[in-house]
């Protein structure tokens, strides 16, 4: 699969602090990449560097296979983006705001304006000045603008900020549609994991400027699958029983007397029966599951919605 975007050891240092430190990430064609991190973790700065708005202190950015060292080398006509809350000219209508963008992109025909307004459901409001738009409408108009020139890569910074649950659902559906129908590669940042759940194919977690983890979404899910947690009086003996009599290898003694079992979890009764047969005192047996949110919080050592 071809690499659409790659960074190597991307770093941005300011006088007092380092906002982004050695961030390396890879987006392949068709990825929906969830870029996760708390507020202030360095997400926006990283995205700004990719778009040439902020000059990296060190490190490399590669877009569509070409190294980018200056803003003018960035193939902007292949990239659509929304960085933070999209800005518009308030006295100018939705159509004309997009028309300004069309001229900036050097595009000839105006058909795509109506098309992209239609795609985000704003066709009816197209002649209203943007100052009359709600925040949700502005987010959608921002998306329409980002899509106007039919980009191959879409960079969206917190696209659901300030939206109500209905708006969040709609935006998510819209993004999924774009990825599936138009085969656009999408880089999506968020500070709330649940926003990218059921959407992302690839996840990168950034914390205090560092990339903690970059894995396919399934791997992340794998780490968080269900398990049986059993409290017994003798964990060594219990381990022996698991391996030799139940043929279970996927288990972990996480602390003294506490075992987590990751396979045959539906056979809790059988496991319990065997333990009792070998004279183990089972104090507690429960089926548990870490939510991704908990995992994310554990990883970043704080509240996920900070």
């Amino acid at each position: 699969m071809d690499v659409i975007l790659r960074t190597r050891n991307l770093t941005k240092r300011y006088k007092e602090h380092t906002a982004v430190r050695d961030v390396s990430m890879t987006l392949r064609r068709g990825d929906i990449y969830g870029f996760l991190g708390q507020n202030g973790a360095g997400k926006t700065t990283t995205l700004r560097m990719m778009l040439g708005l902020v000059q990296p202190t060190s490190g490399e950015i590669e877009l569509f296979g070409n190294k980018v060292t200056a803003a003018r080398q960035i193939p902007f006509e292949r990239i659509g983006s929304i960085i933070e809350i999209p800005g518009f000219y308030p006295n100018i209508s939705a159509v004309d705001n997009l028309d300004i963008h069309r001229r900036l992109m050097g595009m000839g025909n105006r058909d795509s304006i109506e098309e992209s307004l239609d795609a985000v459901g704003l066709l009816a409001a197209r002649n209203h000045p943007v100052k009359q738009f709600s925040l949700g409408m502005k987010q959608r108009l921002g998306l329409a603008r980002a899509l106007l020139h039919r980009p191959e890569l879409l960079i969206l910074d917190e696209p659901t900020t300030g939206l109500d649950p209905q708006g969040i659902r709609e935006t998510r559906q819209l993004i999924l549609d774009l990825a599936l129908k138009r085969k656009i590669t999408i880089l999506l940042s968020s500070h709330i994991l649940s926003e990218i759940e059921q959407m992302a194919t690839q996840v990168g977690i950034i914390h205090r400027g560092r990339m903690l983890e970059e894995v396919p979404y399934e791997v992340l899910q794998e780490k968080n699958k269900q398990y049986l947690e059993i409290h017994v009086d003798n964990d060594r003996k219990a381990a022996m029983v698991l391996e030799q009599h139940l043929r279970i290898a996927a288990y972990q003694i996480i602390q003294l007397g506490v075992i987590r079992i990751y396979e045959r979890i539906e056979e809790a009764a059988v496991i319990n029966q065997q333990f009792v047969r070998f004279g183990l005192a089972v104090r507690e047996l429960s089926l548990k599951r870490d939510s991704l949110e908990e995992y994310f919080m554990r990883l970043t050592g704080g509240r996920g919605d900070a």
Partner: peptide, 15 residues
Amino acid sequence: SGGTIKLLLIRPMSR
């Protein structure tokens, strides 16, 4: 102040 500067600069036109 209007947050529109990004739109001008992430375009193929030079600054």
